[in-house]
Structure formats: structure tokens, C-alpha cells
Simulated scan of single mutants.
Amino acid sequence: MTQTQTGAETSAAVTQEVDVPRARAAARRAGHRVEAVSERSETVTTWANPDGTLTTDVSAGPIRFYDQKLRLWRDVDVNLSRSADGSVASKAHPQGLKLGNGATRAGKTASTPTASEASTDLVTLGEGDRQIPLQWNGTLPAPRLNGTRAEYVNAVSGGDLVVEATRTGFEQFVELKQRPAGEGYSYTLSLRAKGMKVDHQADGSVLFTDRKSRKTAVMPAPVMWDSTVDPVSGEHTRKMRVTMKVLQRKGYVDPNTKYPVVVDPSTSALSSLFDTYVQQGKVMTNH
């Protein structure tokens, strides 16, 4: 038995065309809107309507990206998955987000990292010469994956290291499950970026500029909050600043602090560093 498809059925199945004129013609024949692929961007989708008008949808964040290797547009999917070789990455991330797969040996418990320990790749953005790796001083356990979230359980003493994949980059923070001993603790993140000048700003943020002193990215001042929330808004009401030192080698000791406590250095701004080039540099941040 053979099955044939009429011209009307073929027209009705069309959902996109290469440019606006073809999309308008296809929409008129099909009786529904047809996307003009030539007008696509990371955040913009343009449709031709059956009456000849155009409709443009603009998204607040990227919904697709152009894959240079495959030479086609791909829908963004930042959910994390683990490959057969153990590597962890977002399924379809605009900046090729990859995460450390953990290096803690069986039977060994992760402890609070020190500046003298070897660094482990935590997050990598970009490909080839344009990679920007963020490193963690010390070993890491294998991450526990849940959608866009990777949890490195007990990566610090009494706390978990968490990386959250976003459409523009990532967020990294530490969730303390209990009060730190003594005066608290610190941890070190090592960022290798090419051609970056790094300046610590008066408001606690870190400014990245290129060789021509053009602003490239900002890492906002880190903050921390406990588990106290407003019952109406659901917002965290107890927040405070976290000390961050750049290019150098304190805590939450209030007895009213409600654990767990989250320390958030907000590194998602690193995703905007990709248009920069030049020499090798290294940034160390202590929290």
C-alpha cells in the first residue's frame, strides 16, 4: 500500500522557511504562521502570518545558539548529564558548559581546601583557545546531578559545593549545613582568563577589562544568606556581605543564624568574557 500527500497537506505541515518572502508565501498557503529562519538570533524569532504581517517574539534570555561545528541553530538545554566516560556537561549550552566530574578517591572524605592543595577544574566555559576554566583548590567528590544543578556533597567541611547551569553561564555557591568551627573558613577559586586585567572595586565586585581598558565583565560582590525567610514573600531576610580578596592568598557566627547558610559569589557574569583575547593571566579569589 502506498500513501500520497496532497499539496494542501504539504503546505499545512510547513512551519519555517529560509527567509521572509518565502515564509510569507508559505503562511498564506498554509493558513498559519511560518517562521522566517533568516531573522533568527539567540533571543529573537520572527513569524510571517497568513495575512502578510510579521510577528516577532523577543525572549529575555537566549533560547537557542548557533553551533559552529554543526553549522545550525540548536535549542538551549542547560540540563546536566553525565557521559559514559564520566564527564559532566549541559546538554546544549551556548558557551559549552562543562563541570568537574570529581576526583576524590574511594573511601576518602573531602575536606576544607587550602591554598597549598592542587587545583581541580570545577567549571569550564568555551572551547579551544577560548576556554575559561574556574578551578577549585583541592579534590572534589563526584557530583550529584539534578536537572540544571550539580551538588558536590561535603566538598567543604560541613557543606556542599553547588554549581547551577544557566542560559548565560553558571552560578556557583557553597551551602553550609552546620556552623563552621572556630572563626569560620575560606575557600579559593582560581580563574584562568586570557588578556584580562582584574580590579577589585570599592563595592566588593571584581571588574574585568581588556588591554584597551574596555569593560568586559563584572563579578558582583559575593553575599551569603541563612534559611530565615519572610513567610509572605518567601525572600531570605538575613543577608550579609562576604569578604573576597583578589590576587591574594570570614563567616557567620551569630548564634541566631539558621542553617543551612548559602555563600554565593555569583560567577555567572563570567559568561560575557568570551570576546576577549591576549596573554595568559590568573585570578585567585578567596571567600
Rank of each mutant, 00 (worst) to 15 (best):
L122F: 02
P141M: 07
R149P: 00
R144S: 02
D129P: 08
T124Q: 09
G128S: 10
R130L: 14
E151W: 05
L122G: 00
V123L: 05
A118N: 14
P141E: 05
N146Q: 15
P143L: 06
E151G: 03
G126V: 06
D121G: 04
E127A: 12
L134P: 01
Q135R: 15
Q135V: 00
L125I: 07
G147W: 04
A150N: 09
L134S: 10
G147T: 01
Q131F: 01
L122S: 00
T139R: 02
P133I: 05
N146P: 07
S119Y: 13
A142D: 03
P133D: 14
G126W: 10
G128E: 09
P133K: 11
P143R: 04
R130H: 13
W136Y: 07
A118G: 15
E117V: 12
Q135I: 01
P133G: 12
I132P: 01
N146C: 03
R149Y: 01
R130W: 09
L134Q: 08
A118D: 13
D129G: 07
L122V: 03
L125D: 04
R130G: 13
E127K: 13
R149F: 02
E151P: 02
L122A: 00
R130F: 11
V123H: 06
E117P: 02
S116W: 11
L140V: 02
L140D: 01
N137C: 10
E151D: 14
P133R: 12
A142W: 01
L140G: 00
T148G: 05
G126L: 10
D129F: 08
T139Q: 07
P133E: 13
T139G: 06
D121F: 00
T148Q: 15
D121Y: 00
R149L: 11
A118W: 03
L125K: 08
E127V: 13
L125S: 05
A150Q: 08
P143M: 09
L125T: 03
G126Q: 12
A142M: 06
A142L: 02
T124A: 08
N137K: 14
P133V: 15
L145D: 07
A150Y: 05
G128N: 10
Q131N: 06
D121Q: 09
D121A: 11
D129T: 14
L145K: 08
N137Q: 12
P141W: 08
P143G: 06
P143D: 00
R130Y: 12
G147S: 14
D121R: 04
N137T: 12
I132Q: 11
I132D: 03
S119M: 05
L140E: 00
G128F: 01
E117G: 11
E117A: 14
P141C: 09
R130V: 04
E127Y: 13
Y152P: 03
Q131E: 13
A118F: 06
P143Q: 07
T120P: 01
S119N: 12
W136I: 02
Y152L: 04
A150G: 11
E117W: 09
L122Q: 03
Q135H: 12
W136E: 06
L140T: 00
D129V: 11
T139D: 15
G147C: 10
T120L: 04
P133A: 14
L134M: 15
R144N: 02
V123G: 02
T139K: 03
L122Y: 00
R130I: 01
P141S: 09
V123F: 09
